[in-house]
Structure formats: C-alpha cells, structure tokens
Design a binder for these strands. Structure first.
Lengths: 193, 193
DNA sequence: CTGTTACCGTAACAGTCGTTACCGAAAGGC
DNA sequence: GCCTTTCGGTAACGACTGTTACGGTAACAG
C-alpha cells in the first residue's frame, strides 16, 4: 500500500474552517477557496474529501449539531430539574464568545436554507429535537402540567433563546451576556416560578 | 424636455422584487438579473435607478422597515395599553402569510449583514427602535415598574417574537399561526398578567 | 409633425464561482 | 533500496457575477 491520510481529522479541520468563514463573512463569503485558505490547504484537498460544496456544508453542519447535542446531554443530567433547565438554556443562548460565533453560523445556515428546502428540513428537524429536550426538562420541573400547557411554555422558552441568539448577531451590545442571563432567569421565573 | 419616468414607483417595484427574491431564494439567489426578471425589466433599468447593488438592497430594506414602522404606529394607539401591546406583538410575529415572507426577508438581510458591518449596524438600529417601542408599551401597561424590570420584560418579549419569526422560517408547521398566538398570550400573562 | 432629450434595453467586460482533469510527490510494503 | 499506490496541489474550464458603455427608441416642447 501507499501513503495514508487521517480523513476524519481533515474533514473536521475543514469543517472548522467552514464555521469560521460562515461566522465571519456569512454565506456570501463561504467560498471553496476561502475555506481552503482558512483550513490551510487548497481546493484540491477540499474537493477530494467532499464530493461537492453542498456535501461539505452539510457535514460541517451535522458536526456542529452533533457536538452541541452531546454537550447538552451532559448538562441535562446535572443538578435539580430546574437547575438543569437553566443550564441548558444558558448553554443554548449566546453567552460565551464561542456560542456567539455558533449563533452566527446557524444564522448563515438558515439563510442558506432559504433557497434549498432540503437544508430547511434539517434545520426544522434539529430545532424539534431541541424543543423536545426543553419540553422534557419542563416536564421534570412541572410534572403536574398537561402536555398542552407544557409545550406552550417550552415553545416560548425555545423562541426566547433563539431570538436572543438572532438579535445578538447584529447587536451584541444590547444583548450582552449579562442581559441574556437576566432575561433567561426572568423568563424562568415568569413561566415556571 | 423629453420622456419622464416615475422614479419612485419604479424604485418601489424593484424593491418589491428584491423582497420576493430574498424571501424565495435567500441572499444567494439575489442576483441583479433575478431582480430585474422579477420586476419585469432588465438590469439596465435596475442600475439606472440605483448606483449599485448595495444601494438597491439598502433601499429595499429601508422601504420595508419604514412600512412596518408606520403600521405599528397605528396599532400602538388602538385600545387599552395591554391590547395595543398584544396587537403590536402579533403584528411583529409571523402570523399572516405576508409577515412570514417578511421574516424570511429580514433573515436574509441579517445573514447578508454577517459579512458587512455597515448592514449589521442598520439592523441593530432597527431592532433598538422596535425594542424601544415595546418598552414604551410595557411602561403604559405597568407604569409602577422601574426601568430595569421593564426593560428586562421588553427584551424578553422582543426576543420571543423574533425567535418565533426565525424558527418559523425553517419550520412553519411547528410555529403555526395558532401556536404563535398562544405563545404570545401565554408570555403576556406570565410577564405582565 | 419634428427635433431633441431623457430613458432603458443590449451587449460586452473583467472577475470569481464551483468543478474537473491532470500530474508531481510523498509514504508504506517488499 | 525500489515500486506502487494514494494523496493533494496546479491549472484550466464554463458558467455566472456586478458593472459599464453604447445605441436605439419613446415621449414631450414647439
């Protein structure tokens, strides 16, 4: 045999380049050449690792989704139900600098999905999974509620966090980490307190 | 003199074409040729009316912002403070079909702003104006609250509505008009009830 | 009706995009 | 050591982008 390459490591490195480009320049700046330059290689390697641009974007998307899902899985089991819910919501918000970058990435993907229903479907699926997670946590905090009342609150909490993420993309001053924490705590108190 | 053209009417027609393209195909499909075809003219007219693509996008954006601002001004004065607040929040949400399209337009603009800080600044400014509007309405509902408590609730309500708009873009089934209304009413009850 | 002027469609430009073909070079088995 | 096989960089292609220059044409003043 001949030389071997760590394909998974390369795919991840290129995917991380995709995240950085998406967060920094949006879908408009997400060029194969830009990705290659950011990853420290050429378009040749990028298109040897992925069949085409769409496959690259989907892989980078799934990788990010998978990672955040794993980390939220861990948070879900820590402390009391109310504490776990708060921890997951804080994690999903864009409080830390890297989460703020992630919010920009998701926004870029969502905008790219405007033109392609297939990507929009993936986004919908991912958000339903997040909604189910929050609903599960709300059920642990308020086991006596019926599904209808619980889902309404879950949907509200998800929309609240997602809205702050979206708004922080354009105005990270108004939606500072401190403000986001305060809003989350206020919402938890209002809906579940 | 020679022939005359209704420049304002043309600019508005082209801007409407921009909205339709942005909502339908996102920033990636927003081509001068696509805009011209949608507006029923050629790129020649488009670039005779606007100096370049960016000016066209900014004009279409400002036109949409101006229109929604006017319509919310009217809603702000109808009925009791609580009713006015609910009416404005319902208007800002994507309950009607045309508002859902608008949410797609705003999302596309926000994604386009990822690469250009100038556009992001306009977005931040617009959202601060909306936040100030909601804060004004909350102050009318709860005059006894101090500014801190009031702003926290206003920020939460704005994020809630904006989040539902964003999420409805990818999943208009989970965030149906009925669900959005229910969530808004629940939030008003939780925060101000 | 005619001349003139503003209007706007046509066509070309340079640049960049995603994608492909090709080929030198690096690395493991013998 | 060599030889083979895979790797990955180079360069080109056609398509499409925003933008510009030009010319035909429609409409108003006289």
């Amino acid at each position: 045999m001949a030389r071997t390459a760590d394909k998974a490591e390369q795919a991840e490195r290129i995917s991380r380049a995709v995240w950085r480009i998406m967060a920094g320049s949006g879908p408009g700046g997400l060029t194969l050449r830009a990705v290659a330059a950011e990853a420290g290689c050429t378009t040749g390697l990028v298109l040897h690792r992925f069949p085409d641009k769409r496959a690259l974007l989907v892989h980078a998307r799934d990788l990010l989704h998978e990672r955040t899902g794993r980390e939220m899985d861990e948070l879900e089991g820590t402390g009391s139900p109310a504490q776990a819910l708060r921890a997951v919501l804080r994690y999903a918000a864009s409080i830390e600098a890297d989460k703020r970058q992630e919010a920009r990435v998701w926004l870029g993907y969502l905008a790219a999905a405007l033109g392609e229903p297939g990507l929009a479907g993936r986004h919908a699926q991912a958000n339903r999974a997040f909604l189910a997670r929050i609903d599960r946590l709300v059920a642990r905090v308020r086991p006596d509620w019926d599904a209808r009342a619980r889902t309404t609150v879950s949907t509200a909490l998800v929309a609240l966090v997602e809205g702050m993420n979206t708004l922080a993309v354009a105005d990270d001053e108004t939606y500072s980490p401190r403000t986001q924490k305060r809003v989350i705590d206020r919402a938890l108190r209002a809906f579940l307190g």
